[in-house]
């Protein structure tokens, strides 16, 4: 018997996803996608995956949603500047009724095939849960997900931190920060006082929450990703409202902060190799401390990376960007 709540949740998720994907108005689609992400976090809780729920709410729905919304804002601004009153109509891709029908039929066929394979999955559920449980005591942490992420499969996580750095290098290589977009409000002297007050209030709370998530990750749901996501959220808030005390670090420090996670992760791994152990083979008794060290650096880098990804390009040398206070104090 399936609980009614699960059925309701799944129906709502599928409906939201469909509405988000067919919406001609992209703004509507993105808002529906954010709602979809929040419900998804609820689904993860139902599936007893609180770590994922935290990450989904912060990254999957929150920061991804913010990225989409700021992109739409920039697109509209470009269209306005190009003199397009209305966004250009979306050109149909697969022309004609038959094309659309064939695409739909093909997708349904593929989905049905996949669904059949899932339906026919063998009942005896194998998995590595027992293997993780058996070695958990040696991992240096007592939370199983953190043990997998930063010890048993730490190499995956190392490469993944590399993916984050690739993303920022790529974004910096492709585009310059469109800083006027971000600072438009502040330049007009019109960051509403409520917003400033909220940011002044929330950012310290978010810093505390990030620290708490980082610390608690060793024993309970939480860890570097969730903490980094909260830091990233705080960074986005700062970019949008630029309170007088917030200053973008100099580019040298920015680079160092972005690379810190990979640097410390790889450094610890290689130091262990030099000490005659294997890559990321923590010595007994040291595992917990080394994991916390790596996680702290990774948290910092993830937070900074997510913030700067939201900025959407390399901060240029000539812009007032590096010191955020610059324009804020003008009347």
């Amino acid at each position: 018997m399936i609980p009614a709540l699960d059925i309701l949740l799944i129906v709502a998720l599928l409906w939201l996803a469909r509405q988000a994907l067919v919406a001609r108005d992209l703004f509507k689609g993105v808002v529906l996608f954010i709602a979809f992400g929040l419900l998804l976090a609820l689904a993860w809780v139902r599936l007893r995956a609180p770590d994922i729920a935290l990450a989904e709410a912060a990254i999957g729905s929150g920061l991804t949603g913010a990225l989409f919304l700021s992109t739409l804002g920039r697109l509209r601004r470009m269209e306005r500047e190009a003199g397009q009153a209305e966004p250009p109509p979306e050109d149909g891709r697969r022309g004609g009724w038959t094309g659309g029908f064939l695409t739909a039929a093909g997708t349904v066929l593929v989905t049905a095939l996949l669904g059949w394979a899932v339906w026919a999955l063998p009942a005896g559920a194998p998995g590595l849960g027992d293997a993780v449980q058996a070695r958990l005591g040696e991992s240096g942490v007592s939370h199983r997900v953190t043990a997998v992420l930063l010890n048993f499969r730490a190499y995956d996580t190392l490469l993944e931190v590399g993916v984050l750095l690739v993303a920022i290098v790529a974004v910096w290589a492709v585009a310059r920060a469109d800083f006027p977009f971000v600072t438009r409000n502040a330049e007009a002297g019109s960051v509403p006082p409520q917003q400033t007050a909220l940011v002044n209030l929330l950012v310290p709370v978010m810093l505390v929450v990030a620290g708490y998530l980082l610390w608690i990750g060793a024993t309970a749901p939480g860890g570097a990703f969730q903490a980094g996501a909260v830091l990233g959220g705080a960074g986005v808030l700062l970019l949008l409202s630029r309170p007088h005390w917030a200053v973008l670090p100099e580019r040298r420090w920015m680079r160092t902060g972005l690379a810190a996670g990979l640097l410390v992760f790889l450094g610890v791994g290689l130091a262990l190799v030099i000490a005659g152990r294997r890559l990321l083979e923590y010595p007994a008794g040291w595992a917990g401390a080394l994991i916390l060290l790596i996680e702290a650096a990774v948290t910092l880098s993830i937070g900074l990376t997510l913030t700067l990804l939201f900025l959407g390009g390399r901060p240029a040398a000539g812009d007032p960007a590096p010191t955020m206070t610059h324009t804020n104090q003008q009347p």
């Binding site: 590595l128 293997a131 048993f152």
Partner: peptide, 13 residues
């Protein structure tokens, strides 16, 4: 072959 982190497969990589 090289077991990363000293963990044997399938737990490790």
């Amino acid at each position: 072959q090289y077991e990363l982190g000293g963990w044997a497969v399938p737990l490790g990589i």
